[in-house]
Amino acid sequence: MSQLIWNGLFTGSFYALVALGYSMVYGIIRLLNFAHGDVYMLGAFIGYYCLTLLSGVTSGLPALLIVLVVAMLATGLAGVGIERLAYRPLRQAPRLAVLITAVGVSFSLEYGVRLIAGADPKVYPVRLDGQPVELLGARLTAEQLVLVAVAFVLMGALHTLVMRTRAGRAMRAIAADPKAAHLSGIEVGQVIARVFFLGSALAGAAGVMAGAYYGRIEFLMGFVIGLKAFTAAVIGGIGNLPGAMLGGLALGLLESFGTGLTGGEWRDVFAFGCLIVFLVARPQGILGEKAVVRM
């Protein structure tokens, strides 16, 4: 029971990190950034190569934390690059066209990584199998606890940034009304780039953590998590950041218990079933308000 909760928290915090980027981008430019899950995958691979390079110098948790920062910077920049090259020129295009472009970006990332790293799964060069400790009836390692703590610190930092800083205020202004924000002198393009940087960096961090947690990575690992992160964002009310965090954790826990009940084979079916039920029954999410207007 306690173990299920911990497992749920682990996967849930990965989902939450990825869901945040999904939700931020959707909130600000109404784009379902299809390639977002692949940025997570990219983070995992960048982490893999950095850890391999570092393996002679340092290892274990310190190495992982250094690599985490590097991977976040790299994926953040990758996110900005993707936005600049693929999405920005299509700002005025029909939504369908942008979505298709996002599918193209997703393919390019997945199969680009496959081209470089090969199709076989890679074993992550860092293990979190330190001395397990008993905590509230669950077996955990100190490293795992640190990872969850890092995830929560990142989420907290993002929340502060969006709610307390000038840059964050500009983001919220654009999300609320892009035209008015532009008229009031906000550099819309720059703010969008920042949102992509933050969102992608968080996804990259989640990728590295997931690599360390599960121990294996492969080039298609971003697809399912992208879908689940979207589910999490919807559960929380898309565009709503605390909602995305909550939704991620909720989905992680739901899945963990669902797996406990029905067996791991049906985990994904269970998660997507949740998505469909949620969208149909409460499309505004847990934290969203029910709208009066029909259309």
């Binding site: 472009t101 193209g104 393919f107 997945e110 199969y111």
Partner: peptide, 11 residues
Amino acid sequence: ARYFLFGVLLV
């Protein structure tokens, strides 16, 4: 490379 090229082509 084929699906990579395909993705790039699409974009």
